[in-house]
């Protein structure tokens, strides 16, 4: 899995823009994400961060720009212009997407084991015992008791659902994980536990990830680098500690100071 020829970026975003009629979703966004790196995107709601994430993950088609991904077979390839089958293939193999609301990323009427096993089966796993073992292993890694393997997520708490969603996404060892407000909508104590878990997984698996959040604590803990968005544009970017400790842009200063007051 490790990139032997430490050649180039895993994801290269060039000049991406998305408009909703006359309104700007996001524009002029360019950056590179390197293997093993976690990029945080922060901003208030309406800042364009979720639009950007959806453009990067192939859920929305940008009106302008390129999103180049380092594919296993052809190297850097524009995911915006690749065919639907290719994109779907990426989505179920090399990419993972963790939704803010776990129910959007889970099959609520399928057991926890089935949820974790789906990606394995989608890429050809056909041994029930092995799929189940793998599912048990992953439930353990996200701190869900193995006894719950045959329960449906509808019987789970919000925090458990979110952890299950993460297990379901990571089970096939994706090369790039997109996360949309992974701690949003959870109680503070539950958030802390989830963040802890995510940090462990990121370290352990050397995950490459793009995390969208309005919560600076999340990026402080997880992200190597940071982009601050406002009105659809990136107003500041840099190493996480640098940006948070010494914000240059007025808007970033406001964000940082407001979080400090809390």
């Amino acid at each position: 899995m490790s990139n032997l020829q430490e050649s180039g970026p895993l994801l290269s975003v060039r000049d991406v823009a998305k408009f909703y009629g006359a309104r700007v979703g996001c524009r002029d966004v360019s950056f590179d994400l390197w293997p093993g790196e976690v990029m945080g995107i922060v901003g208030e709601s309406g800042s364009g961060k979720t639009t950007l994430l959806n453009c990067l993950a192939g859920q929305l088609t940008p009106d302008h720009g390129e999103v180049l991904f380092d594919t296993r077979t052809d190297g850097l390839k524009d995911t915006v212009r690749m065919s639907e089958p290719e994109r779907r293939m990426l989505r179920r193999t090399d990419w993972a997407f963790v939704h803010q609301h776990a129910h959007e990323g889970l099959r609520m009427n399928v057991s926890a084991g089935g949820n974790v096993g789906e990606r394995l089966m989608a890429v050809g796993a056909r041994n029930y015992g092995q799929i189940r073992e793998e599912a048990l292993d992953w439930l353990g890694r996200v701190e869900i008791s193995g006894e719950r393997i045959d329960d449906r997520p509808s019987a789970f708490s919000g925090g458990m659902r979110q952890r299950l969603q993460i297990a379901r996404n990571l089970v096939t060892g994706p090369r790039l994980v997109f996360m949309d407000e992974p701690t949003g909508g959870l109680d503070v104590s539950v958030q802390a536990r989830l963040l802890d878990l995510l940090r462990g997984l990121v370290r352990e698996m050397g995950l490459s990830a793009i995390i969208v959040t309005h919560d600076l604590a999340v990026v402080r803990l997880l992200a190597d680098r940071l982009m601050v968005m406002k009105g659809g544009e990136v107003v500041e970017a840099g190493l996480t500690d640098q940006v948070l400790d010494d914000p240059q842009h007025g808007y970033t200063q406001l964000l940082v100071s407001s979080v400090l007051q809390v």
Partner: peptide, 22 residues
């Protein structure tokens, strides 16, 4: 129809998995 076109049959096995689990 899209699932057939793209050979996305993982869901079919999820159903069989659920049968065995239950």
């Amino acid at each position: 129809r899209k699932m057939h076109a793209l050979e996305e049959y993982g869901l079919m096995h999820v159903k069989l998995y659920e049968d065995i689990a239950r």
